[in-house]
Design a protein around this nucleic acid. Structure first.
Lengths: 160, 160
DNA sequence: AGAAGATAGTTATACCAAGTACCTATCTTT
DNA sequence: AAAGATAGGTACTTGGTATAACTATCTTCT
């Protein structure tokens, strides 16, 4: 039930807190929307013991078999050191393997295992449901506009 | 300059990493867009030694003088414990004060100081520039659509 | 009035995300 | 063969978020 902020017994402070100034910033809106999205996403992936980062990595490995860790780090926009623990975790759970690259003994070729692919398929289905939940109340046209705008914002200021 | 991923000497891994599957998720787009936005925002606020959280808190205190910490926590969608260190920091820098509420000795009424307001005004101007940068390339109609969509996503799944 | 329960702020703690500095092993270039 | 670049990794730091539990007050109910 609603908090009785304006309850005269509840006394001090403004009856209702205004965030009008902040709402003038797109970042404020994005943060708040992303927070609720991420909360739902976390719950969505919990049954598979995946987080956003591990799911993202798993997906990119499924779609790009044999890619190297540095390529994955670039694609995910994370620093190489931070990717290591993600890959460690996926490998420890036997969802992926680090194959040595014969022609470059520094590099690993990342590949999904059978178990990894099976988990991925289930998680993907759950993510599709999550996506549907998130976009409830938005028509297709609006979605396209939003997606294009997000891409514009991202690409326009992407680090060179 | 561009990484020569497809350089035949650079050898292994896919020539180009595809993220088509992930791009089917609005969350992926939002995260990436928000990441670049936050990077710019962090730089924007750095001269004032403010972070997104401290700027947000300062703004809400300026706009809602006398509000209590719990109201601020609610408005910011952060847990009360996490707000404490934010308020501590603003108070330590003499940007705000914690006034005791005479009618409820448990509560604090938060108010901006003169120094706080002056810093706020400067930061606000910088934030307006930041906002303009972020929305470069998007017309007003698109902005409205995006903002409405973000609000729909947020409100629809707001924690009751 | 007095006990029971709620609320405001706080402390301590934990986890995850993100970033930097630096190291080793290998590859490339000259 | 030496110098520099690259792949992956270790160690460490910071920041955001979350929960449990504590103290002090306030409210409610009998």
């Amino acid at each position: 039930m609603k908090k009785a902020i304006s309850d005269p017994l509840g006394q001090p402070g403004p009856a209702v807190v205004s965030d009008d100034t902040l709402r003038g910033f797109i970042g404020y809106r994005m943060k708040r929307a992303f927070n609720v999205l991420q909360a739902d996403l976390t719950q969505t992936l919990k049954p598979f013991e995946l987080r956003m980062l591990t799911y993202t990595a798993l997906t990119l490995i499924v779609d790009n078999p044999g890619l190297r860790q540095s390529q994955l780090a670039d694609a995910m926009d994370v620093e190489r050191p931070n990717l290591v623990i993600v890959i460690d975790e996926l490998e420890r759970r036997d969802l992926i393997v680090r194959d040595r690259v014969p022609t470059d003994r520094r590099a690993y070729a990342l590949r999904v295992t059978l178990a990894g692919r099976q988990l991925y398929e289930k998680a993907f289905a759950a993510m599709k449901d999550h996506e549907k939940r998130m976009l409830e109340g938005l028509d297709a046209e609006t979605c396209k506009t939003v997606i294009a705008a997000l891409e514009t914002i991202q690409k326009h200021h992407a680090k060179g």
